[in-house]
């Protein structure tokens, strides 16, 4: 595995080459970033095949749209992360394409709270985000994390937390506003 001994080039340096049509640069970006992006997509979509489909679309989109990446507006990894999240969320919301069995859906929903706790626990103690999430009421924190980390919508988050829809909406709204104020 000689190639793993070389550090990966920065995604920011690969993207202009991809925009110029260099397929090898896209392959390098895939090698460096696909593992992380696949994990993000799978945490939202739950199914490996769907997560792979999302990643496939993301890299095709990078191939087509690399010229639109603007370094001054954020990191390339951030750009890839947002694209991956959006693709996975779109697939999730487009429910017809996701064929979970009934029992499976309930089991998966049960898992979501555990996923959220694991994500929160994995945040570094020095991370300002962790500090600001800790400052929220537990219910608001869980509502925000269920939606962000596992991609639940308001209704699914309400079912998971066993509270009315309006309560979830209000928790999420107040949670995200408080979070932005804390992170400012």
């Amino acid at each position: 595995m000689l190639h793993t001994m070389k550090p990966h080039p920065a995604p920011e340096d690969l993207i202009p080459k991809i925009a110029g049509g260099e397929r090898a640069a896209l392959a390098q970006l895939f090698e460096a970033e696909s593992g992380r992006l696949l994990a993000i997509a799978q945490r939202i979509l739950r199914r490996r095949d769907l997560a792979e489909e999302a990643i496939q679309e993301v890299f095709l989109s990078v191939w087509r749209n690399a010229g639109s990446y603007d370094r001054s507006k954020g990191t390339a990894r951030g750009w890839l992360t947002v694209m991956t999240r959006n693709r996975a969320l779109n697939m999730l919301r487009d429910g017809a394409r996701i064929d979970y069995k009934d029992g499976e859906t309930l089991a998966e929903l049960g898992d979501r709270t555990a996923d959220v706790r694991a994500a929160f626990d994995a945040l570094s103690a020095r991370d300002a985000l962790r500090h600001c999430l800790e400052a929220l009421d537990a219910s608001k924190r869980e509502a925000v994390l269920l939606c962000y980390v596992t991609g639940l919508n308001h209704g699914e988050a309400a079912a998971t937390m066993n509270v009315p829809l309006g309560t979830i909406k209000s928790w999420v709204r107040r949670g995200v506003v408080a979070l932005q104020e804390c992170l400012a």
């Binding site: 951030g78 992360t81 985000l129 962000y148 980390v149």
Partner: peptide
């Protein structure tokens, strides 16, 4: 863009899956 970047450490907690 700022909030997206700030929340990205949560995405990083998903780890990596070999593609």
């Amino acid at each position: 863009a700022k909030l997206q970047a700030q929340l990205e450490t949560l995405d990083d907690t998903a780890g990596e899956l070999p593609a």
